[in-house]
């Protein structure tokens, strides 16, 4: 199959490089904003939607602080362009507590002192909840391996593991 020049010329819908309207579905709300195409999902959340709970630790995909869910799966928002998220459901730490009540994982993090400085914590929690949903929290080794994309420089790891085990073992499963 060859693609001729007339097909190439027919490509329409190239957007940018200046600000263009973008619609993002975040935590169940629709947000219509204007962004340059080069804006990451992380920066769209933090700088354009004032959702600063999602943290920027490296902006290079090496720390996990920016973990959010896209269509229920955990991804790194620093390496995702906001425009690629149109039509997808994004969930951030701000959407985890319901009706003012902490999610069991949030409460377990507090009870087990699973953080110190707190900067990696939103990403840890987004991964931890997803981990159980994925079925990757069965054994201690599973938890350790599948949480390894979230670095905690304060080294609260043992306490994070304890929090995850508690939620996993609770009746409602978190």
């Amino acid at each position: 199959m060859a693609i001729n020049q007339s097909t190439a010329a027919a490509v329409t819908g190239v957007r940018g490089p200046q600000d263009v309207p973008v619609t993002l579905d975040v935590n169940g709300s629709t947000h219509a904003i204007e962004l340059e195409p080069r804006v990451s999902l992380l920066d769209a959340l933090r700088e354009h939607l004032d959702l600063t709970g999602t943290k920027k630790g490296c902006d290079q995909g090496t720390c996990g602080a920016c973990t959010v869910w896209m269509d229920g799966r955990r991804v790194l928002s620093c390496l995702t362009l906001a425009m690629s998220c149109e039509g997808h459901q994004i969930a951030t730490i701000e959407g985890i507590a319901q009706d003012g009540r902490l999610h069991p994982m949030q409460q377990a993090f507090i009870d087990h002192d699973a953080f110190q400085c707190g900067y990696c914590t939103p990403g840890q929690i987004m991964s931890a909840i997803a981990l159980i949903r994925e079925g990757n929290a069965t054994t201690d080794a599973d938890i350790a391996e599948h949480m390894s994309g979230n670095i905690c420089r304060c080294q609260a790891y043992p306490n994070i593991h304890a929090a995850i085990r508690e939620v996993r073992d609770a009746d409602d499963g978190g």
């Binding site: 959702l51 902490l102 939103p122």
Partner: peptide, 19 residues
């Protein structure tokens, strides 16, 4: 005692200096 700033940290509500 649990950390008093725990809720701010687990909900993402706490504002760090770049926020």
């Amino acid at each position: 005692v649990n950390r008093v700033d725990g809720p701010d940290k687990v909900t993402g509500a706490g504002r760090y200096c770049g926020e």
